[in-house]
Design a protein around this nucleic acid. Structure first.
Lengths: 312, 312
DNA sequence: AATTTGTCTTTTATCCACAATAGACAGAAT
DNA sequence: ATTCTGTCTATTGTGGATAAAAGACAAATT
């Protein structure tokens, strides 16, 4: 449960009695794992800067990865020559639990608590207690709470505790009210995107995935959640408004955890939503503002109902 | 320039070489100053809990205040008897610089930098440098930046620096787009507030202040900024939507610093805005949605133009 | 019986330290 | 002439310590 991970290798410059683990090397571990995937498909690795580009990390981390690959006899590394010696095995990978950043761990842990556990509105949130429970320092928890507060589910009493406002009916109604305003406006601006805007291509791709999932709905209905986010985010992005796009984070996180939490009838619900999406997509492709407005409203209405049904 | 304030008094339980100032007692100092004001008007102070209520602090702080008042021979304090001995003098007060919380200091300092100084979009923001310049620890600066990021003016690159997106034309347009959506909706819901809702009373008060300021516009036009915030916040609050109300924070902070920054023609601009507000208020009082919509649009349009004019 | 006070404990706000990570720059290799 | 590598420095992320502030509870007071 706790993520108080042990360090796999003893750092060279430090004897025993590891004093205080200032920072987890999750960036390194995650990038290392992703590098192993790359390594499975080539016989030679590119330059350090290029590798850094691909993995999204700095050269410092790339060199740490290469060092470890060498230690595990996965490659021979001599300056520019990086020759793959063998395919990576499952045991070469770091366990997945060690690759998520502290922020992710705290978020998951917190959401589980407030969605699953007894989360009465008005409850006090204690930074120290939360930190102990999750197994981290208070600073990280504090920063998480500050970031999370923009979702409107918690509120700070200065010099005192946080208050849980709760995932209530009012919350859902306020959220959907804004969501509907924003999405209707975004959808309307979608139709005036220039013909060669990449969003049209992405929309086509998304449409195709919808059809694929619908064709095998019994097995693949669980993939809807992710697709849903991808589609709505695309729509919101066409607003070109940072506040509208940022707001979509709130919707995404709420629906994300909501899907995990409330699985009743999800096959049917998802099938219905997929159909609505297809109608919505067709409307967008027609470029007819009236049709878009109608299809968008129809879908938002049923999305709101679904969300509300799941709240006691 | 720096706010690296010296501590006025040596704490009793600690000799010399103050080791690390974990927390500034600004809450105490500010509440103490406010207590002196109270003290100027009565001959006896209420109970500790009641005083805490009035000053908005805990009993612990109240007792620290009473102790200091006693030390300064401002009162005699014996259990429930708190008798005022003399009126407070200016020298009894803590200097104002010592009464603002660290968060306020950081905010002011930061806004001055990005609005006044060379604040080219794309500029990197360095936590350590900012902290040194302001004279605080990095943690406080970090937390400020996290909180501030919801205003859309800065953005974090994970594991790396913050990027200043800048107070640009795009920013202003995106901000006003959402503002207009929210305010139109809030204004529309204002008219359906029940007759006995306190907002109607507050609206009347606000209207009266408008007329007072207009009657003496040459001397009082500077009071507009604060009144503007009060009025629009009242409108937004009638939406009963936390996301809409929270968004008003962004508008408020932008306009707040904007007024400080751009003072050209402010007398005329404020006079015009006051007139528009009065028309807007009259429309709200008429309860006629059409009139409200028109008056609101007219004012929002000129507010947007004013904001845009001030951006290069 | 309800407050108020005295005392004590808990929690927050803030600083600092240090490992992980990013990033800069000169010299080496193509 | 560009790109890469070796080396070094700077900055972020996170845990821990501590004073300020909040808050709990029992005894005292009205």
């Amino acid at each position: 449960m706790s993520s108080n991970t042990f360090r796999a290798e003893a750092r060279s410059n430090r004897g025993l009695a590891e004093p205080s683990m200032a920072k987890q090397n999750t960036v390194f571990k995650d990038a290392f794992n992703r590098c192993l995937n790359l390594l499975a498909e080539t016989s030679t690795l590119p330059s350090e800067p290029e590798l850094g580009q691909v993995l999204g990390v700095s050269r410092t981390t790339v060199r740490a990865i290469l060092t470890r690959c060498e230690e595990l006899k996965l490659i021979i590394w001599d300056k520019r020559r990086k020759i793959v010696l063998r395919r990576p095995e499952p045991s070469d990978y770091f366990p997945t639990e060690e690759t998520s950043s502290l922020a992710e761990i705290i978020e998951r842990s917190f959401m589980r608590r407030i969605l699953a556990g007894g989360a009465e509105p008005g409850m006090q949130i204690n930074e120290l207690e939360l930190a102990r429970e999750i197994g981290t320092g208070t600073t990280s928890v504090r920063e998480f709470l500050i970031r999370f507060s923009r979702f409107g589910l918690i509120e700070k009493r200065p010099n005192s505790h946080w208050v849980l406002k709760g995932f209530t009916r009012e919350f859902a109604l306020e959220l959907t009210e804004v969501r509907e305003m924003f999405e209707l406006r975004s959808a309307a601006s979608f139709v005036s995107l220039p013909e060669d805007h990449p969003a049209w291509e992405e929309l086509k791709t998304i449409e195709a995935v919808h059809r694929e999932i619908l064709a095998d709905i019994d097995n693949r209905y669980r993939e809807f959640s992710e697709l849903d986010e991808r589609f709505h985010l695309l729509v919101h992005k066409s607003s070109s408004n940072r506040f509208i796009i940022d707001f979509y984070d709130i919707i995404a996180i709420v629906f994300h955890y909501h899907y995990q939490w409330n699985k009743a009838n999800s096959r049917e619900r998802n099938a219905r939503a997929l159909e609505e999406h297809l109608a919505y997509i067709a409307a967008l492709q027609s470029r007819d503002p009236k049709q878009v407005d109608q299809a968008c409203r129809r879908h938002l209405k049923s999305a709101r109902e679904t969300l509300l049904q799941s709240i006691p």
